[in-house]
Design a protein around this nucleic acid. Sequence first.
DNA 1: GTAAATAGTTGACGTGAATCAAAAGATCCT
DNA 2: AGGATCTTTTGATTCACGTCAACTATTTAC
Lengths: 252, 252
Amino acid sequence: MNANQPFQQDSLCPHDRRVSCANCRLNSICLPISLHIEDIDKLNQIIQRGKPLQKGDYLYRANDPFDSVFAVRSGAVKALTISDKGEEQVTGFYLPGEVVGLDGISENRYTNSVIALETSSICEIPFHRMEELSLKIPNLQRHFFQLMSREITQDQQMIILLSKSSAEERIASLLLSISNRNNRRQLSATAFRLPMSRTDIGNFLGLTIETVSRIFSRLQQQQIIEADKKEIRIINIEELHKTANGGDACHS
Amino acid sequence: MNANQPFQQDSLCPHDRRVSCANCRLNSICLPISLHIEDIDKLNQIIQRGKPLQKGDYLYRANDPFDSVFAVRSGAVKALTISDKGEEQVTGFYLPGEVVGLDGISENRYTNSVIALETSSICEIPFHRMEELSLKIPNLQRHFFQLMSREITQDQQMIILLSKSSAEERIASLLLSISNRNNRRQLSATAFRLPMSRTDIGNFLGLTIETVSRIFSRLQQQQIIEADKKEIRIINIEELHKTANGGDACHS
DNA sequence: GTAAATAGTTGACGTGAATCAAAAGATCCT
DNA sequence: AGGATCTTTTGATTCACGTCAACTATTTAC
């Protein structure tokens, strides 16, 4: 075998269930810690890989008993809660390498429902087996504390965004967030496909779909982005950052 | 000693540094888990109790290196971040029995600053010693996972509140939140003193101080609450719940 | 392939909360 | 005690975003 050729497993398609943590392209995101190879193997053994979810499929529903957290391997999912009045509220989007379900731990049931935005492969991590393993692998315990802490930090940034920012700032921030997360996965930071609908974006950002649409149009007019349906090209990332932070016409 | 009399330590004043976890009145909130008495003692031994903070004192500042998480024993604190433009954003209020600083774990430095709203006693829990201890006490590991998960759940509820609710709903929700948290500590759910200023409330809820003031006045006119400065009496908790959930004139 | 349903865009108009302004209470300081 | 500073209240005005409505583009279903 030519050493410049990838190993066979590296070329497994993203939905192949034979992938293991050790050769997963996402392990630097999903497991950004120094685990020994044998520890990775132990973790790998408790992880379950189900068949891919199709668009619209539920990964789990709010109030289901909590058993596992889930890492997105490919595709994308959204988390949402249903209010008393039956309205949806999207609480987050999760891209490959990101972990969802951490909210279920405290109450022993999930507080959100999670739905696939497109065909998605998911790694299931049975939480109680992970907990046991954590007692033996300090770095794994540390990793989960960090994962949860990161979720807290991100949620708090979201609180700030919703509390202080205009519609334009919110949308610019979301685009930059997706851009960064793509970049971490070695994908283009300036050209990508949004996995979620305008409706989901509006719901997530606390805006109506009409406002979302208008802002996209405006950003396009200003030559900051090019948006063709869900395909986005960031033309002037400099200016997009300015827009996200209150722009030139800073009014706050 | 009369068995019906409390132990001497039960009557320690809340700022007394000789208090221990085993006899702390808040341990059912701060440590709502079944730890064996000897485990509680091990935990107690790593906890440090500094001298009380005065109003306005910092517990820590954003970007300080992360060493510890902190449990509020008495008083109250607020967490806040400073935006690029130097504006404060309050990200949470923490009352006795609640734990602050969990956001620092992932980046190894705090992302918020924490400031005392009034004279406050704080228990410091050195995180790395707690981590080591967690490897030996599975229930303690479990407890910290749950604490962090609860913070995630609460932050997500805050996201929903900010994303979907009117000014009136936000303030009603905050009052009910404080009421519930007081209730858990065996205090009155209907009469209490707000530890934070109107400015802090507005900042936290994404409202201007003027709006906060107007809403307080309106709730008072409607005979739902009585507000004399920071002293609050909830007169009609039924109606306050309705107000928090969109009220009768439900427009959403 | 065509109808029906769903998702997105654009315009006109209304409204809830921000902003601006002023004054009345609290609290701090010497 | 008395001036200074900070906090809170209330009113008048403005504006960003929501609402309502009409229309287009895209996807789904038969």
